Simulated scan of single mutants.
Amino acid sequence: MPKVLHVIEDLECGGHAEQLRLVASATRAAGESVAVASLRRPGPVAAPLCAAGVPVEWLGWRSAVDPYAAVRLRRLARRLRVDAVQTWDAASDRAVRWSRAGRGKAVWAAVDRGGAAGPRRRLAGADLVFGPYEAADGAASAAGRLVRTPNAVDPTIAGAHTDRAAARERLRAGGIRLGDDAVVILAVARQESPEAVRQLAWAADLIRVVNPAIRLLIAGGGRGSAAAQRFAAAATEPGLVSWLGPWPDLRDLYAAADVAWCSGSGGPQSTPALEACLAGLPLVVAGAAAAPIDGIIVADLADRAGWARATLAALKSPRTAPPAAALADHAPDVVAKRQVEGIAEAMSRPRC
């Protein structure tokens, strides 16, 4: 089977790093050879990767163009004798393109997790593209390079629906002020778009008029988090919105919540949406496409009144056992196997 080197900008908490952790750990558990290279200093996701037996290398990438780090990446790929280099974001795409680590015998596979309507990365040189959406990469699809692979979801979250009181007690012990009678909305997303976060804060403020017990917990970092926090502090009631920042283990958050919000471009197929479903949480998702799993309410985030109505409707829905059948294709071992098979098939094709 192919030896794969995963390349990513960093291993901070976020969708790309979490997907890499799930796929690489599942690949290693299956007895396959896999390694991870982080362009910048590895974050908290590096520890569970190492615990799973996946070696993590830090390339020390310090600027947009770093020829020394590019040489380190090329030498690492040669030393490991990898059959494929798999990139996870725009920074790692550029690194592999500049370092030529994916040239020669090694296959360059790119994971494109942008939403169906999200921004596209420059993947013209990739041998194949993994993505959960039909429109993930139009050029790749037309050339037969697109391999449909769903996002993986952490199976340990499935037990998060069992004990809400104990989860809230653990969160309080960690410094989160959360009463037993609070109605908790959980949003897990990187704050790259301040506008989307402002819409969430406004919607929470609107719901609070109907239900004063509402609390909105937002987990995730990102470049827009500081600006979004300042806005929420000035525009919403004190204590309504709690900014948790990057949160490595989400199980207690999912267990403590009453409903989940998913505002990212990934829609119902995004990692937070799938995790919320696995935790048995009622879920409100931004988008226009029909939800693939029963129980998901799709609404327009720009319509704050409509979003609030959808949330109030979701709060009337009881927590349910996770829909195992609907999420079977999202198991990490299934996703990892599909990606390995895609790489093996690409290796068998003649290359220029």
Rank of each mutant, 00 (worst) to 15 (best):
R251W: 08
A279H: 03
A203W: 09
L200P: 00
E195W: 08
E237F: 06
E192C: 05
I218M: 06
V210D: 13
A279R: 02
W247L: 04
S242N: 15
A260V: 00
Q191F: 10
L200H: 01
L250G: 07
L274M: 13
A257G: 02
A228S: 15
A219D: 06
V259I: 07
E275C: 12
A232V: 15
L217K: 05
L200C: 01
A273S: 11
A196I: 07
I214F: 00
V259K: 01
S263T: 03
V197G: 02
W202Y: 03
A219P: 07
A234N: 12
A260M: 02
S263P: 10
S270P: 15
G245P: 14
W243R: 07
A227V: 11
E275V: 08
L240S: 03
V259A: 07
G239L: 10
L216S: 12
D258Y: 01
R190T: 05
G224N: 05
L250E: 02
T236S: 04
A233T: 15
D252M: 08
A189L: 13
G266A: 14
A234W: 11
R223W: 00
D249N: 12
T236C: 14
I214W: 00
Q191A: 14
I207F: 01
F231I: 01
A228C: 08
Q199N: 13
V197T: 14
A255E: 12
L250N: 03
F231A: 05
R190C: 09
D205C: 01
A234L: 13
L217A: 07
P238C: 06
W261N: 15
A204P: 15
L244K: 04
A276F: 06
W247M: 08
A227Q: 14
G267L: 09
S225T: 15
V259T: 03
A213Q: 08
A196W: 01
P282V: 03
G222Y: 09
S265N: 14
G222Q: 11
P212W: 00
R208S: 13
W261T: 15
A234C: 11
E192N: 12
A235P: 02
Q191V: 15
F231E: 04
Q191H: 13
A227F: 05
Y254V: 10
A273F: 06
E237W: 03
E275P: 09
N211A: 07
I214C: 00
L278T: 05
A233G: 15
T236D: 09
A257Q: 02
A256G: 06
L217P: 10
G221Q: 13
G222P: 14
A228M: 06
L240P: 09
P212G: 02
A279E: 01
W202D: 06
A228H: 04
L250Q: 07
L281F: 00
R251S: 11
W243A: 00
G264H: 01
P194V: 10
